[in-house]
C-alpha cells in the first residue's frame, strides 16, 4: 500500500454521469480528473465486456504520470482511482482493497433511504466524503458502524 499514491477517486453513474469526483493531488486541476474519469468510461465498458466475472478491471490506461484503475459494480456504477505512479509495481490486491473500500463506502451511502439511487445528482454527503477522503489519503478505516450515523440529506 505504501507505494500507492492516490490522486483522484471518481464515481460514475450508470449513465456515465459523474456522481463524485475527488481530487487528492494539487499537481493537476480538477478539470483534468474530470476529463480522465469521463475518458475512462469507454475503456471500462470495453474491459467489462471482455471479462465479466470480476468487478475489478485493473489498470485502464496510463496517461502522463497518471495511471487509471477501474472497478465496475454489478449495477454498472463505475469507480475510478487515479494513481500518480513513480514507476512501481502496483499489486492488484492493494488496488482491489482500495476499490472494495470505495465500494463499501458507496454501498453505505446508497443504503441511505433518502438517497435517490438513480438520480444523476452528484453525491453530497459528509460521511461519504469522509470515507472517500480516508481512502484517498491512505488512512485506515475510520468512522463507526453505519447504523450509528445520522443519515445525511441527499
Amino acid at each position: 500500500m505504501a507505494n500507492i499514491n492516490i490522486s483522484c477517486i471518481a464515481i460514475i453513474g450508470k449513465q456515465n454521469n459523474p456522481l463524485y469526483i475527488k481530487n487528492f493531488s494539487p499537481s493537476h486541476p480538477d478539470l483534468k480528473y474530470h476529463y480522465i474519469a469521463h475518458t475512462s468510461c469507454d475503456v471500462m465498458e470495453e474491459r467489462a465486456s471482455m471479462k465479466a466475472q470480476d468487478m475489478y478491471l485493473g489498470v485502464l490506461f496510463s496517461m502522463e504520470d497518471l495511471s487509471v484503475y477501474g472497478y465496475m459494480t454489478n449495477t454498472k456504477i463505475k469507480f475510478i482511482t487515479v494513481l500518480t505512479v513513480p514507476d512501481v509495481i502496483i499489486k492488484d490486491l492493494d488496488m482491489k482493497n482500495i476499490f472494495r473500500r470505495i465500494h463499501s463506502a458507496y454501498v453505505n451511502h446508497a443504503s441511505n433511504p433518502f438517497y435517490e439511487i438513480d438520480s444523476q445528482k452528484m453525491i453530497k454527503s459528509k460521511k461519504f466524503e469522509q470515507e472517500i477522503d480516508a481512502i484517498g489519503r491512505g488512512r485506515a478505516h475510520e468512522g463507526g458502524n453505519r447504523n450509528s450515523q445520522i443519515a445525511p440529506a441527499p
Binding site: S62, M63, S67, V85, D87, V88, D92, L93
Partner: peptide
C-alpha cells in the same frame, strides 16, 4: 494469485497515448 502486481507504467498502450504524450 494475490501477490500479482503490475507496473502500470509498463503496460504498453496503443500509439494514441504516445502521440498524446508527444503533443503534451
Amino acid at each position: 494469485g494475490p501477490g500479482a502486481g503490475i507496473n502500470p507504467m509498463l503496460v504498453l498502450q496503443h500509439a494514441g497515448y504516445f502521440y498524446h504524450q508527444a503533443a503534451n
